[in-house]
């Protein structure tokens, strides 16, 4: 019988999760090791975001278990197929996030808080792809950033890296 843990979201929803799934989070793993995780584990993550986090963790867990059960014969072909499956799953996952940016950034903050390096890396790449072609002005607006350069300083940066600003 797998050991189960109860995670409590910031809006008081309870999620029953297998230890193996949730141990991917370094933060929770440490809580469990320290013995701090008895009963419900309260997390500063909303239920909507936590559900998404667990969706990711379960998919990753699924992958590791299957790999462990493999014998070497036919492994390569199977791995290739699995890679395709994972790609497909990740594409679907990222499409959903691209459509709902609130969830994307909530998830990014949660992955940082829960210390989930693989998810964090995946999300940072998504955000990077999202902003890559944009101009500084658009970025400021997008993230509510104040331009604290003087016009001269701005000009100097543009002159130094002129090629980067060419369309």
């Amino acid at each position: 019988m797998a050991i189960m843990y109860a995670l409590k979201s910031s809006d008081n929803e309870i999620f029953e999760v297998e230890q193996k799934v949730i141990e991917q989070s370094e933060t929770i793993k440490k809580m469990i090791e320290d013995g701090a995780a008895t009963g419900e584990i309260p997390l500063q993550v909303s239920s909507k975001t936590l559900a998404k986090v667990l969706e990711w963790c379960k998919q990753r867990q699924h992958k590791t278990v299957e790999n462990e059960n493999d014998d070497n014969k036919g492994k390569r072909k199977k791995e290739r197929d699995e890679d395709d499956d994972i790609k497909e799953w990740e594409n679907k996952f990222s499409d959903e996030l691209k459509a709902d940016k609130d969830v994307l950034f909530d998830l990014l903050l949660a992955s940082n808080y829960l210390d989930l390096p693989a998810l964090l890396s995946f999300l940072c790449q998504l955000v990077a792809d999202m902003v890559a072609g944009k101009m500084p002005e658009e970025i400021r607006r997008m993230f509510n950033i104040e331009n604290d350069f003087t016009p001269e300083e701005e000009k100097a940066i543009t002159a130094e890296h002129g090629w980067a600003f060419q369309p």
């Binding site: 940072c124 790449q125 990077a128 902003v131 890559a132 072609g133 944009k134 101009m135 500084p136 970025i139 400021r140 950033i145 104040e146 331009n147 604290d148 350069f149 701005e154 940066i157 543009t158 890296h161 090629w163 980067a164 600003f165």
Partner: peptide
């Protein structure tokens, strides 16, 4: 760190 070099240079101008 996941952006192409061109974007990195451009984004130096976002803020200090």
């Amino acid at each position: 760190s996941r952006l192409p070099a061109q974007s990195v240079f451009k984004f130096k101008r976002v803020a200090k």
